[in-house]
Amino acid sequence: MRIGVITFPGSLDDVDAARAVRLAGAEPVVLWHADHDLRGVDAVVLPGGFSYGDYLRAGAIAARAPMMADVVDRARQGMPVLGICNGFQVLCEAGLLPGALTRNSHLHFRNRDQRLRIERADTAWTSDYVEGQEIVVPVKNGEGRYVAAPTELERLEGEGRVAVRYVGGNPNGSLRDIAGVTSEDGRVVGLMPHPEHAVEDLTGPSTDGLGFFTSVLKAVVGA
């Protein structure tokens, strides 16, 4: 099982994402944004960071990188894709996920351990959790406020597309406490908090984040 982690100029958490992939029991594959070759990976993680310095809009320029055209094509055929933080912003900008991430309502960068509720335990990236399960992983962002038009939010709630929600305090003013959303087919998931920073007792507030990376092993085998 090979899981690609794409590095963009300005990515920060690609090494941690690769480490989480390895701890989950898969082989991490280093991918470079400017290439046009997914190297036969079974799934892709878009890591956190500040691709292109967040110029224009967070994730906007990375979403138009050569490798992203391949990711969009394969995702539309069902390849699992996880976007974390900046990766979530890239997925929204690429049109693979609905909505957008904007400047935090309080204008501050927020960095803390965050309690989340898993709302959907049947996506490619969350099947090792149970619906309603609460987990604690770090959150760290300045532009993490999830927004969409009111009618779009109603539609997303109706379709059960909210995958993860903030509980015990909303760190950035995201509408309806939305921390992460999923594609219609449940194969693409994006979230602002960082499960890859919560995979080892030594460095994280918990090991709650590992489930994202173990879930996808079954999603690919089962496909």
Binding site: S105, H106, L107, V147, A149, P150
Partner: peptide
């Protein structure tokens, strides 16, 4: 510009 229904905390700070 941000659509009218999207809140603009930077504008509010200004």
């Amino acid at each position: 510009v941000l659509k009218p229904e999207i809140s603009d905390p930077q504008g509010q700070a200004v």
